[in-house]
Write a protein that binds this DNA or RNA. Structure first.
Lengths: 95, 95
DNA sequence: TTGACATGCAAGTATCTGCTTGCCTATTGT
DNA sequence: ACAATAGGCAAGCAGATACTTGCATGTCAA
């Protein structure tokens, strides 16, 4: 069920979607499309929709249909597995 | 110069390489190949070498040629940018 | 009910990616 | 010097991936 989180992050548009949702979770698909367009992304609604499917597969996003809208919620918890896999030595970095 | 860190992580074999290096940094390519084979990976030397090029592009690995050996060092610092981009609420996770 | 709106679904296409194959270079030991 | 070792380089191929296009579905307002 948890389709590869890493592959989900591999696409710049998908990362922009996560950024956008972190800024404002619970947007509708339409709203998200507008905002991404404003930010310079040229993706069509269908493209975004497909990206969302990938993100949802990875558990990074939760799609909740309500009436004729699909609300999109961010869920960063799948990222924990990445954060825990490779430790970044915070002490040995500088100086 | 910093080729996409995210794309570098997108491949399972490359992640296994990072795991292996975290376990023991400074291996030679040959050594790494043997160890990956032992762990069930079927990649050839050339394949591994190409993966290393991608990882090096992303800065996750440093290749240091010495004599006829190429030593491979892990560098996890590029991962920080990921860890800082999306915050995982550590408090709201359990209970 | 009817039309506009928000979205889903699916096939086709072009590019990217990982891998193989085959050969070349450089270093070390005898 | 010569052979074995460790690795590099590059072209070709097959599968994956992102995107487009066209149409279908479902919901809300008038």
């Amino acid at each position: 069920m948890v389709g590869d989180v890493y592959k989900a992050l591999a696409d710049p548009t998908r990362r922009a979607i996560l950024d956008e949702l972190q800024d404002r979770s619970g947007q509708t698909l339409f709203e998200l499309c507008v905002r991404l367009t404003d930010k310079g992304f040229t993706s069509t609604r269908q493209a975004i929709s497909q990206h969302l499917a990938v993100l949802a597969e990875a558990g990074l996003v939760v799609l909740r249909r309500q009436g004729r809208y699909t609300f999109i919620d961010l869920d960063t918890s799948p990222l924990q597995q990445i954060y825990q896999r490779w430790r970044v030595g915070p002490c040995e970095s500088d100086t």
